[in-house]
Design a protein around this nucleic acid. Structure first.
Lengths: 210, 210
DNA sequence: GGGTATTTCACATTAATATGTGATTGGAGG
DNA sequence: CCTCCAATCACATATTAATGTGAAATACCC
C-alpha cells in the first residue's frame, strides 16, 4: 500500500486525484491540502511514502514546499505536478531534490504508474520534462566553437588576467618583460574583439576559454 | 520508417540488435560498426535518424564518438547504450548532447519504444539513469551562498562592469556622476574582497552574481 | 530621535591600462 | 630561400582605474 499526500489548490482537481488514487488498489490518500502553509507538520504527522506536489499554489508554492520538506526529510518521495514544463521551475524543483516531475495532463493510469515508480526509488518524468532535463545538461556549455585562435602563450596570459593579475604580476609570473605582456594582451584584444581587461575576462568566462 | 545506425563492439550483441531492430516494422538498420573510428564519415554517408551507441568500445569509445558526431551534427538523435549506469559516463554523455541513455538489459520491446521516443524528440532513459540524473541535479547544489550583500545599485554597477563598460559609460548609462560610480565600485570591491575591475568581473561570473 | 546604510557628489594623486610605432629572433611551410 | 607568425622587448603618450578623504540627502530600524 503506497501512502500518498496531495497538495493541490484547485478543488476539482484535488477531488479528482483523491478519488482516482484512493480508489485504486495499492494506493491510499492519507490527506490532501490546498497549500503548503503547514507542510512540515503535515508531512511529519502523516508520514507518507509519496507526496504529490502541485507547483502553482497560492501563499506557499510547490517549490518552496519542496524546500521546506527537504530541510527536514530527505526520505519521502516528492513528485512534482504541474501544467507547464516551464524550464525554470523544472530546474528549481530537481535542484531541490524532487524525485520526479510530471505534467497534469498525464493520463490516470500513467500517473499511478509514476507514483509507484517514485515510491520504489525511481525518477518518473514525462517525456517533455526528460527532454528539457537533457537540454539543460547539454546547455551547460557545449564546446561552442570560437576558440579565437589564441596562441598558447596568449591563453596563458589570458588565464592570468582572469585570475586578476596585473601586467606587472604577469610579467613576473611568466619571466618576460612587461612590454611583452602588453604586446600579448594587445593581440588578445584583437582576437577577442575587445578593448579592455574586464571585457576580455568576461568573454573568457562566457565562451569558456578558461 | 526510423533509420538506425548501430555502434557495438560485441559481435553477438551487434547481430542480435540488428536482427531485432531490422526485423521490426517501422525500423531499419542502415549499418552497424564495431567502433567509432570513422563515425563522422559514416554518419554523413548514411544520414540516420537515430544512432545506437555503445559506451564501452575499443579504440574510440562511445563518449568520444558522441563528441565527434556533435561537432558536425546537432540533429541526429544519439541513444547511449551501456551495461552499467556508471555515474561519470552518464554525466559525460548527457553533457555532450546525448538524447537518451538506456541499459543493455532493457527488454527488446522497451528498446524499440525508446528508439521511437528518441526519434520523435523525446529523451528516453531507463529508470535507474533518471534517478541518477536527478541526483546529480540535487548534488550539484551548494555553490550558492555568498551574495556579498551588494545593494541594488551596486549590483547594477557590477552588471555594467561585467558588460565591459568604463566608469564614464556607466555614469552616462545610470545618469549619475562618475565620482558616484567610483564610490559604488569602491564599495563593491570592499564587499567582494577584490581590488580591480577584472577581479570583480571574474568573481561575478564564478559566484554567479550576474 | 539617533544610529546605520544607501546613494549621491567632489577633489586630488598615484597606479595601471590602452594604444601606437617600432624592432629582433626563431620556427613552420610553400 | 623567403615569407609568415609567434614571441620577445622598447619607448612614448593618453586614457582609465584605484585609492584617500570628505560630505550631504534619504530611508529604515529600533
Amino acid at each position: 500500500m503506497i501512502k500518498v499526500i496531495l497538495y493541490e489548490d484547485n478543488p476539482q482537481l484535488r477531488e479528482g486525484l483523491t478519488m482516482l488514487i484512493d480508489g485504486s488498489d495499492g494506493f491510499e490518500i492519507l490527506a490532501s491540502f490546498k497549500n503548503c502553509s503547514n507542510v512540515i507538520q503535515e508531512v511529519e504527522a502523516f508520514n507518507p511514502d509519496v507526496i504529490l506536489m502541485d507547483i502553482d499554489m497560492p501563499v506557499v508554492n510547490g517549490i518552496e514546499g519542496l524546500k521546506l520538506i527537504r530541510q527536514k526529510n530527505q526520505e519521502v518521495k516528492v513528485l512534482m505536478l504541474t501544467v507547464f514544463d516551464d524550464n525554470k521551475n523544472v530546474f528549481e524543483a530537481l535542484k531541490n531534490g524532487a524525485n520526479g516531475y510530471v505534467l497534469k495532463k498525464t493520463p490516470p493510469a500513467k500517473l499511478l504508474e509514476y507514483i509507484t515508480e517514485a515510491a520504489s526509488g525511481g525518477a518518473p518524468m514525462t517525456s517533455s520534462i526528460a527532454t528539457q532535463v537533457l537540454k539543460m545538461f547539454s546547455e551547460v556549455q557545449i564546446p561552442q566553437g570560437e576558440d579565437y585562435n589564441l596562441s598558447d602563450r596568449e591563453k596563458e596570459v589570458l588565464q592570468h588576467l582572469v585570475n586578476g593579475y596585473s601586467y606587472k604580476m604577469i610579467a613576473a609570473e611568466m619571466f618576460i618583460a612587461i612590454d611583452t605582456v602588453r604586446s600579448h594582451i594587445k593581440k588578445i584584444y584583437e582576437k577577442l574583439h575587445v578593448n579592455s581587461k574586464s571585457e576580455a575576462v568576461a568573454k573568457a568566462f562566457k565562451d569558456k576559454i578558461v
